[in-house]
Write a protein that binds this DNA or RNA. Structure first.
Length: 611
RNA sequence: GGUCUCGUAGCUCAAUUGGAUAGAGCAUCUGACUACGGAUCAGAAGGUUUGGGGUUCGAAUCCCUACGAGACCGCCA
């Protein structure tokens, strides 16, 4: 018992020390370089010398570029590199050698450092996880409208939001996942009106349709009928713009919105019922995608809140009122325009609701940062929102961050729900499930799986392909999706990473007992490369968090499995007869398995043991 | 009209945030399985980083300009 505790204690201690050490290896180099300037050249030390990883085609692990510091050394680049290299080699035990090419000082780290690193960390299932930072971040994502089902663009949003939240949590932040449901407004009234007019009481039960799809069907029907009305009015001689206002359907929808705002019982009943259908549908899709939320906000609850803030701002003099009663903010000093905050009839606009919701969120959570995962079409909106909050003197304004991601476009252009030119989320997931099933069957490696396990596996791999496909791209960039070209399962893909995980798992299942190796053990290039990649996991997690970019994580995972597969192919593991070599490779396998699993988890991708 | 993104191999994406000879995957071609899992590995070919100018030791990255693509600028959400 005592031994067990001691062991556990030691393990934790080692873990802790490691984190300190990990923090400091690059910093030790930096400090060493600063010291070198002081002692060798007797000059001021450069404030923050930059250390980078050495490119593969050169010998070495870390590179210091001396060009910017020649003013300090007053020597030629080669000479400066040599001076500092010599100093570092004497000063730091883990520096085993160096070479200088032009102005690049390539520093070599000795094998013993890498072996020790592996010995200390191979068994940690939470390697790379930061200790608590005592900071709260709210990540709002998904935030759907309740008048139509989710499409591929929403999937990108959901996956991004989820992955960013997971990555931030792994970086030590306390994360609150929030979803602001856009459940009121003219859009839902359109679906409602169409259902009332053409629906004949159809329900998800009676039609067998998923609730969100049923409501979406009426949204499309509204648009069709509305366009027909416009055409008719236009052919009767009316101007198009006028017709768009005068069509009976749009008038009806506006009337419905008014009734809703006045609290008309029948309207509210239908609204609640149809929203309920949509929620049931969303629930299924969220569950299938594996995303979740800690807090739901409903716009119907928050849309009036902003008005209070608007009154505050008016009293403070941050806003001004026009004669017709409408309220505005002047943002010309910030390089923007005047912005309406409240209509002349006293009703609130979109941005007003966001002001209210921001306050509500902060009152409840007092978070340090508030991240909004919203498409880049709303860049302007969020710029304005943050400015307004600043003008109102809200401290939390500075924590607002718009994680702006690019739209998912089709070869034909933008997806439009109303026109039905969308890649439906549920359809796409089904399709990938089937593709995955087909490929898996062709490869025929799933002996002993039950029907249920097979179905789960197909789903995991299909989603692995989709999620990786969407997440490996820098969030900021727009994404092109061609429905005619199926998502790959080979190469730089989710299934490739999943495959490597399954492959390592297979090795480990038949692995003999193994243990750490002496630090004097020397490494082959494949081994060294893999350890080096594993070592960089911390950096990848940190950068992914800092940039809020799951793409960093995805690309790291790909590099890692590539390094492992290379080693796997070039060297034997289980059949290796030299015990120390076998032990080292088993440690490498174990650690790679852990890190791949964590990387996938941070991306929301499942890691199957067999596939 | 104004503002803001973006433009890298045929296609989809990287490039340690200003560093070395711009890297991967797909597609094409060539090679490696009586196997520790071939959804793999090795190799070939593919580039004036949209064009032009500038900044400096050094530019895909920063500045200017032209062209091209997209988004936003509503008392819509």
């Amino acid at each position: 018992m005592i031994r067990w505790y001691t062991k556990l204690y030691q393990k934790n201690l080692i873990h802790l020390l490691n984190r300190l050490l990990l923090m400091s290896i690059e910093q030790e180099l930096i400090q060493g370089i600063q010291k070198a300037f002081k002692e060798v050249y007797n000059t001021d030390t450069p404030a923050a010398p930059v250390i980078e990883q050495t490119k593969r085609e050169f010998v070495g692990d870390y590179t210091f570029v001396v060009f910017p510091y020649l003013k300090l050394s007053k020597k030629k680049p080669e000479q400066t590199g040599n001076d500092i290299g010599e100093f570092l080699k004497k000063e730091l035990a883990f520096v085993s050698g160096f070479n200088v090419i032009k102005g690049f000082l390539n520093i070599e780290i000795g094998d013993s450092f890498w072996v020790k690193f592996l010995n200390d960390n191979y068994a940690l299932s939470d390697f790379g996880k930061s200790s608590a930072k005592n900071k709260k971040i709210m990540v709002e994502y998904s935030s759907p409208n309740t008048n139509k089902p989710l499409h591929l663009g929403h999937i990108r949003n959901n996956l991004l939001g989820y992955a960013v939240a997971e990555i931030l949590a792994y970086n030590g932040y306390e994360v609150i996942k929030a979803n602001l449901i856009n459940d009121r407004g003219i859009h839902i009234c359109k679906s409602m009106l169409a259902w009332m007019k053409f629906g004949n009481g159809e329900t998800p039960q009676s039609s067998g349709m998923k609730g969100d799809h049923l409501v979406g069907k009426y949204y499309v029907e509204f648009d069709k009928a509305y366009k027909a009305e416009i055409d008719q009015l236009v052919s009767g001689g009316m101007e198009k713009e006028h017709a768009e206002q005068e069509a009976p359907l749009i008038k009806g929808a506006k009337e419905l919105l008014l009734k809703w705002e006045q609290g008309d019982a029948e309207t509210l009943r239908i609204w609640k019922m149809m929203n309920g259908w949509v929620y049931e549908g969303f629930e299924l899709t969220y569950k299938r995608l594996g995303v979740n939320f800690d807090k739901f906000y409903y716009e119907s609850n928050t849309y009036l809140l902003g008005k209070k803030a608007v009154q505050e701002g008016l009293q403070q003099g941050a806003f001004y009122q026009k004669e017709d009663g409408s309220i505005w903010i002047d943002l010309t000093a910030d390089g923007l325009d005047h912005k309406l905050l409240q209509r002349s009839d006293g009703t609130s606009v979109y941005i007003t609701q966001d002001i209210g919701t921001a306050q509500m969120k902060y009152d409840e959570y007092k978070m340090d940062r508030s991240v909004y995962v919203v498409g880049n079409e709303q860049d302007y909106h969020f710029k304005v929102l943050q400015l307004i909050l600043k003008h109102l003197g809200k401290v939390y304004a500075y924590g607002v961050y718009h994680l702006s991601y690019g739209m998912v476009d089709l070869p034909s252009g933008k997806m439009k729900s109303r026109e039905g030119t969308v890649v439906d989320a549920d359809d796409l997931l089904d399709e990938l499930h089937h593709t995955s099933e087909k490929i898996t069957k062709e490869l025929g490696k799933t002996e002993g799986f039950t029907q249920e396990q097979l179905s789960e596996l197909y789903e995991q791999i299909g989603q692995g392909a989709l999620k990786y496909f969407l997440l490996k791209v820098d969030p900021k960039k727009r994404l092109l999706f061609d429905p005619k070209e199926s998502i790959d399962f080979q190469g730089n893909t989710g299934p490739f990473i999943q495959y490597t995980y399954a492959r390592i798992s297979s090795v480990m299942r038949s692995a003999p007992a193994y243990t750490v190796v002496p630090e004097s053990h020397s490494l082959l290039s494949e081994e060294k490369e893999l350890i080096y990649t594993l070592y960089r996991f911390n950096e990848a997690v940190e950068l992914a968090g800092k940039e809020m970019s799951p793409a960093v994580m995805a690309n790291y995972a790909y590099e890692l499995v590539k390094a492992y597969n290379k080693l796997y192919h070039e060297l034997t593991i289980l059949k290796e007869t030299d015990e120390q070599k076998r032990n080292l490779r088993l440690m490498l396998s174990a650690m790679t398995r852990n890190v791949v699993k964590t990387s996938l988890r941070l991306l929301g991708i499942a890691a199957p043991e067999k596939m």
